[in-house]
Write a protein that binds this DNA or RNA. Structure first.
Lengths: 158, 158
DNA sequence: TTACAACCTTAACCTAAGTTTAGGTCAAGA
DNA sequence: TCTTGACCTAAACTTAGGTTAAGGTTGTAA
């Protein structure tokens, strides 16, 4: 914990990142972070790992699966990355985030018009059914979901 | 499938909502949707359930857990709800969505400044460490996560 | 009335992201 | 030296959100 401490123990990382030791083990096993071992086989990390853990946690809050986070970090970490490559990756990552943001905003906007209506309570829907008029044409009631579009990242779940 | 069809089979719901039959069963078992049974014990639903399923899927895409979606829907469904009550619930739900939206936008904005830097590649971080200067004071490197705020809804995961 | 798709239930299985437990080792201070 | 807290591994367990399988029933159309 002194200032010119060259490396962090797993406990240090846990304390300073707010993540349990078991999770640090887990992340290491999954290849999301890396460090080295002492002669006594104990884990040691560079300070830089803290930021990496922080990014992992933020990305998780955003709903990104670890596999995707890892994949992305790995691609950025491949040493000779051209700015064009970086650009592509960055755009993909953003597209996925944008998709999720859109989803959330859309959901929020549905609140007044939909959550208050009969489809959620058991009373009649006061919005005389703009959705159900679609039903004759096939896959109705998908209007919310179908507005999502099919970005590059939606394939992740499909 | 004819127009004045009063009810939907589980297959109808599946087809029209784009969700597998097994998932419809699952949602029903979890109490997220409800219907009734024919004399032959087959499921029947009102058309309204389609919109409900659509909302569930959008909410899921936004990263909300089913338990939370259900909890919220249940509260709206409690029959005698005053407009004041509705207002409170609506504000809570929106606050949570806003929090998540903010989180995502923040993450997206971190992309350029952070994912391109040395904490992800193995080179030195070009952003001469605004995070690590915090390390002397205790839980450093939590700056991203701690910017998230602790709204009424963050307790859900904690 | 017979075929066949669509339905039913229960139970086992699956992935993700960890957590917990058990049994053993390491390192630093009194 | 001894104790104690921090560390190690492996394996079992957990929750969420489903999917798959097996074996039986229903409903409809020829």
């Amino acid at each position: 914990m002194t200032d010119n401490h060259p490396s962090l123990t797993v406990g240090d990382v846990a304390r300073r990142s707010g993540v349990p030791v078991s999770t640090i083990h887990f992340y290491e096993k999954k290849g999301l972070i890396e460090g080295w071992r002492t002669q006594g086989n104990q884990r040691r990390y560079e300070r830089r790992v803290l930021r990496r853990v922080a990014i992992i946690r933020v990305a998780q809050r955003a709903g990104l699966p670890l596999a995707l986070i890892k994949e992305h970090m790995d691609r950025y970490a491949s040493t000779p990355i051209t700015s064009a490559q970086w650009d592509v990756l960055n755009r993909e990552w953003r597209a996925m985030l944008d998709e999720r943001i859109t989803s959330l905003i859309q959901l929020r906007n549905q609140l007044d018009s939909c959550i208050g209506c009969g489809c959620l309570s058991l009373a009649d829907c006061p919005l005389r059914n703009p959705g159900d008029t679609l039903s004759r044409e096939g896959p109705g009631a998908r209007l919310l979901a179908s507005q999502q579009g099919q970005g590059a990242w939606s394939s992740i779940k499909g």
